[in-house]
Amino acid sequence: MAATKLTRSQQIQQTILYPIDWLEERSGIVGGIKYFLFRKVPGDTNWFQTLGAATLTAFIVQALTGTILAMYYKPDPNGAYSSIQHITNDLFAGWLVRGMHRWGASVFIILMFMHMGRVFLFGAYKYPRELNWIIGVLLLTMGLGEGFTGYLLPWDQTSYWATVVGININGTAPFLGPFLAQFLQGGTYINADTLSRFYAIHMLLIPGAIFALIGLHLYLVVRLGVTSPPWSKEAAGKGPITNGKVTTGRRGLSRFGTRGRR
């Protein structure tokens, strides 16, 4: 080690790289990030396939603005409304953070539906990606759950009465309905605990589940790869292969893929 004397620039480089090497040796994270960034995706992926990333971005906006709102919001019936007024009218850029959270929710939900529509039309839910479709549907219901629980928090007339009706609807479900309604309300009717319960569900329970499911969702995307568009001339595996030859006349990747196999 001491045999060769390092130049000054090499020393600097080594000092900078040391923490990275330290981390890599103990966690393998650098290799993981490299694998994530430099994994191959089909050459003809298109703009429709950015909807997933767009949805993720909208969720991150919700998480960040939500965290800021949580620093000022007071989840009790006596303080909730005035804390929202305080956020909207008094705090620096409070209206912007609240507005972004309020409308980011709509954007998040629209993007989830659009992303799902893209996956459906591309047939990207088919083997071997069935599980990721299911996780996606769960994420959609969680997102709608966030919309439902978040709507009550301003504690104004609109949010209060919409939630009363929403809980009543849950309550009409056979067997589980009354229990679900009671769980949501934190009692047998809407009371002071209902608001803090909705708050806990809205900012701890469901977001935790969403984070976990997004992690799984992305893991499966990386593991299984990105689908190419269904009209792709380069899409893999077009047509059945007989004796190692593609029987259909389609050109493209499938021919390259089988080359040299015999």
């Binding site: 994530f36 089909p42 595996g237 390259f256 893929g257």
Partner: peptide
């Protein structure tokens, strides 16, 4: 078989993320 072929094709002809 189709999925294996897809993986091989993407590895050979795909572009990095």
């Amino acid at each position: 078989r189709v999925f294996q072929q897809y993986k091989a094709d993407v590895k050979e002809r795909g572009k990095p993320f």
